[in-house]
């Protein structure tokens, strides 16, 4: 009776935006849900977005079949401090950005080449010594990945990434129950 549709079994990556009350333990609750039920977290960011209303937004990139993704949304939705959940990938167009700080050490040609590639990627040098740079790069995850990959042979020593922050395109605010 039920769909043998290949889509039902294919693993997809989705970005979910979760609006929560900024109270003690809320992040543990959300993360605990993922670990307790065996869901994946590819990336996670969280910060308060409204100090007056004490609201935080958590952005999670997760993966699973359609059934699992629907479950994740329903499970998140029934947590008491969760005000609303939006599957940005499902709901249409959204903007996703990630910031990375990339430390490259070296000298000579490699140092010049790193600077040149940073320029192409519009990465900014935010720290510099005679034999190192820290670049700041902002973009989609794929762009950040590509930049880091190119830095690898040029003396990459350290990376810090924020994880994905995402927002729906258009004039609408995320609903808040």
């Amino acid at each position: 009776m039920h769909s043998t549709n290949y889509r039902a079994h294919a693993v997809e990556f989705h970005t979910m935006s979760i609006l929560v009350d900024n109270e003690a333990g809320v992040l543990a609750r959300v993360i605990g849900l993922f670990s307790g039920r065996g869901y994946n977290i590819e990336s996670l960011t969280v910060a308060e977005i409204d100090a007056e209303e004490k609201l935080s937004k958590i952005t999670i990139v997760t993966s699973g079949t359609r059934q699992v993704l629907d479950q994740i949304k329903a499970q998140l939705d029934r947590l008491v401090p969760v005000r609303s959940v939006s599957d940005l990938t499902e709901n249409g167009d959204s903007v996703e950005r990630e910031l990375a700080l990339v430390k490259v050490a070296g000298s000579g040609d490699k140092r010049v080449e790193a600077l040149r590639i940073a320029d192409i990627f519009r990465a900014r040098a935010v720290d510099s010594t005679q034999d190192s740079f820290v670049f700041e790069i902002v973009g989609k995850t794929s762009k950040v990945d590509a930049f880091i990959r190119l830095m690898q042979p040029l003396g990459l020593v350290d990376v810090s990434r924020t994880g994905v922050a995402a927002i729906a395109r258009g004039a609408e605010a995320m609903p808040c129950n």
């Binding site: 009776m1 039920h2 769909s3 059934q67 629907d70 479950q71 329903a74 499970q75 939705d77 029934r78």
Partner: peptide
Amino acid sequence: APNSRKIHVDIDPSSINKNVM
């Protein structure tokens, strides 16, 4: 229940399509 159409009434949305579509 391989030959059935299924109707599910539940107060918890996360119970829907959790085990059985």
